[in-house]
C-alpha cells in the first residue's frame, strides 16, 4: 500500500486557552472523497486549515504523500482550497481568477489559456471568462472557485463548507456535480460540512468531529447504521436512544442502544424474538412531504420518533392519529448497541 495522501498524527491546535483541535490522528487515502462532519466549533475547519497551511498546529504533524509539511507555508503545499465564501478576487475576471495559480507558477501563456478553458468547461462555465465575479450567481461563483482550485491539478483538494451559501436545490445539484468531477479528476477531496445529509451522500468515508476530536471514521453506511458513540448516533440522522432504565424496560437489555426512526413501524404484533414492540401515545404528527414523523410517548417512559413513508396514507389519515394510543414495532437487528466509552 502506498503512502496515504494525507496523514495527520497527534494534531492539536489551541487558540489562547481554547483547544480547538485536541489530538487528531487520521489517514486519508489517495483518490478518496473524505468528509469531515461535525457541528460548528467541533474543530473540523481548523483541521482543514492546518492541512492547507493557514494555521500552524500547536502539536502533531501533517504529512502529504509521505512528505512532512507541518511547518510549510500554504504556497509550498500541493493542495488547493475552495473557500466557504469562495474568496474570488473581485478585481479580476473569471478567466484571471482561474489562471491566477498558473500565472503565479509561471506557466506559459498558451498552456495557461488552455488549462483555464478546460477547467471552466469542466465546471460548465465556458463563455464566462470575461465576467467579473460580482456579475455571477452564487452557484456560478462556487464553480469558478472550484475551477480555480482544480486548474492547478493539486494532489489534494480541500473544500470548506463550499455549499453553505447555496439554496437547497442548487446545493443538491452541486453535490451531484462535485461528486462527478471528483470521479473524473481522481484526486483526493477533503470536504468539510456540518450537513450530515451532504456528508453521507457524497463521501467514501466520513469523520465525525466533536469538541476537537474524531468520534468515528468510517463509510457513510457504517456511520449511519452503526454509530460508534451516542453523539454520532444523535448527530448523523435522528436516533432514538435507549439507555439505563428505558433500555431495560423496552429492550430488556443493559447498555445504550440506538434505533433509527425509519426502522420503526406503526402497529404490529406483540414482541417476539425477532421483533420488539412497545405501546404508547402519539403526541405529535409532523407531515414532511415524502414522509411523516410521529412523536410517540412510550408507556415505558421514553419519547421516540418514528418515520413512515407517505406511500399509501394521506395527510388527513396521519393527522387523525394525533393523541391516539399506538403500538410501535421494530426488528431486533435494528437495535444497535452504542459503545458508551469509545476508544
Amino acid at each position: 500500500m502506498s503512502e496515504p495522501a494525507i496523514r495527520l498524527t497527534g494534531l492539536r491546535k489551541s487558540f489562547d486557552a481554547v483547544e480547538a483541535v485536541a489530538g487528531v490522528d487520521l489517514d486519508i487515502a489517495d483518490g478518496e472523497f473524505f468528509s469531515m462532519l461535525g457541528p460548528s466549533g467541533s474543530g473540523k475547519t481548523t483541521v482543514l486549515r492546518m492541512i492547507a497551511g493557514f494555521e500552524l498546529p500547536t502539536a502533531g504533524t501533517v504529512t502529504l504523500a509521505g512528505r512532512d509539511v507541518t511547518r510549510l507555508a500554504p504556497f509550498d503545499r500541493d493542495v488547493n482550497t475552495v473557500f466557504q465564501d469562495y474568496a474570488l478576487f473581485p478585481h479580476m475576471t473569471v478567466q484571471q481568477n482561474v489562471e491566477y495559480g498558473l500565472r503565479v507558477r509561471k506557466v506559459a501563456r498558451a498552456e495557461r489559456r488552455e488549462r483555464a478553458a478546460a477547467a471552466l468547461r469542466a465546471v460548465r462555465l465556458e463563455g464566462y471568462g470575461e465576467r467579473r465575479p460580482g456579475a455571477l450567481s452564487g452557484g456560478q461563483r462556487q464553480r469558478v472557485a472550484l475551477a480555480r482550485a482544480l486548474v492547478n491539478r493539486p494532489a489534494v483538494l480541500l473544500l470548506d463548507e463550499p455549499f453553505g451559501a447555496l439554496d437547497l436545490k442548487l446545493r443538491e445539484e452541486m453535490q451531484v456535480e462535485l461528486k462527478a468531477i471528483q470521479r473524473e479528476v481522481g484526486i483526493t477531496f477533503v470536504f468539510v460540512t456540518h450537513d450530515q445529509q451532504e456528508a453521507l451522500t457524497m463521501s467514501d468515508r466520513v469523520a465525525v468531529f466533536k469538541q476537537g476530536r474524531i468520534e468515528q471514521v468510517d463509510t457513510p453506511a457504517e456511520v449511519y447504521e452503526r454509530p460508534a458513540t451516542p453523539f454520532v448516533a444523535g448527530f448523523v440522522g435522528t436516533s432514538n436512544l435507549f439507555e439505563g432504565e428505558t433500555a431495560r424496560a423496552v429492550l430488556g437489555r443493559e447498555g445504550v442502544f440506538s434505533v433509527r426512526p425509519e426502522k420503526i413501524r406503526l402497529g404490529g404484533a406483540p414482541a417476539s424474538t425477532e421483533e420488539i414492540s412497545a405501546a404508547g401515545q402519539v403526541v405529535e404528527v409532523i407531515y414532511a412531504g415524502a414522509a411523516t414523523r410521529f412523536v410517540v410517548d412510550l408507556d415505558a417512559g421514553p419519547r421516540v420518533v418514528a418515520m413512515q413513508q407517505n406511500q399509501q396514507t394521506s395527510p388527513a389519515d396521519v393527522a387523525a392519529l394525533r393523541g391516539k394510543p399506538i403500538r410501535l414495532t421494530w426488528r431486533a437487528e435494528h437495535v444497535v448497541a452504542v459503545p458508551v466509552n469509545p476508544r
Partner: peptide, 27 residues
C-alpha cells in the same frame, strides 16, 4: 478585505510579495 482572499492567494502558490502586488494593492 476578507482574509480569505489573502489565504486564497497563498493557497494558489503566491508568496507574500506577489499577494500584495496582485491582490492587496489592486483591492
Amino acid at each position: 478585505l476578507p482574509d480569505s482572499l489573502l489565504e486564497a492567494s497563498a493557497d494558489l502558490g503566491a508568496r507574500g510579495g506577489r499577494t500584495v502586488r496582485s491582490v492587496v494593492l489592486p483591492m
